[in-house]
């Protein structure tokens, strides 16, 4: 079972992202369970949503406390909320930012982690560019497809087109695809760097 936790703020589509992730997994014939952190959060408040993906029926109903991957939709949360709580060693981190982990002040924390599993993508910019709205959730799903290899980008695109239609769907698909490409390139670079060190 693969467990994802998504952090963001109310209004950024955190819950929608988890739901779409589950739909993408469903489209691949797998079992998935997405659920919000059940708060009464208003716009702008920190929000968490969860998604479990498995090849078997998912019966577990506890919140995800030891995620395999974390998606951070809003980097301003990094120093406000313990977003990395319980993240498994060698877990995946995907942050919406145009900065590096070092620039975000996370350099020390991730020093011993597998570098190709630590990615950033400027999802907000991609969303503005392709969709015209500052909603980073969908591009990040494209990035997630690249980083964890749990879901195919095609499934994410299918989930997007099930959720949205017309221009919004097309824009989101373009944003997710570009995010996917950016993350793939980032991971390649990280792997090359690691190989050089080795």
């Amino acid at each position: 079972m693969f467990q994802v936790r998504i952090h963001g703020r109310g209004g950024q589509g955190v819950v929608t992202a988890a739901e779409m992730l589950s739909v993408a997994a469903f489209d691949e014939g797998r079992h998935a369970q997405a659920f919000p952190s059940f708060g009464s959060e208003r716009m702008g408040a920190p929000v968490v949503a969860f998604c479990r993906i498995s090849d078997r029926e998912i019966r577990l109903r506890e919140p995800i406390m030891e995620p395999d991957a974390i998606i951070i939709q809003d980097p301003t949360l990094l120093h406000q909320v313990d977003v990395f709580a319980g993240l498994k060693q060698d877990g995946y981190i995907l942050i919406n930012t145009n900065k590096t982990f070092d620039q975000l002040g996370l350099g020390d924390m991730i020093r011993d982690w597998r570098q190709e599993r630590l990615c950033t993508v400027p999802a907000m910019e991609l969303a503005l560019k392709h969709v015209g709205r500052p909603v980073p959730n969908v591009p990040l799903l494209g990035g997630f497809a690249a980083i964890a290899g749990v879901l195919k980008i095609e499934s994410v695109i299918k989930a997007i087109s099930e959720r949205f239609s017309g221009k919004v769907a097309a824009g989101n698909i373009a944003a997710a695809s570009e995010a996917y490409a950016i993350v793939i390139a980032e991971m390649e670079a990280a792997r090359r760097k690691e190989n050089q060190h080795a």
Binding site: V15, A18, E19, S22, H31, A34, F35, P36, R61
Partner: peptide, 12 residues
């Protein structure tokens, strides 16, 4: 049905 746990959960 359990509030949020079921009502707000996406599943098959």
């Amino acid at each position: 049905m359990d509030g949020f746990i079921l009502t707000h959960a996406y599943e098959r």
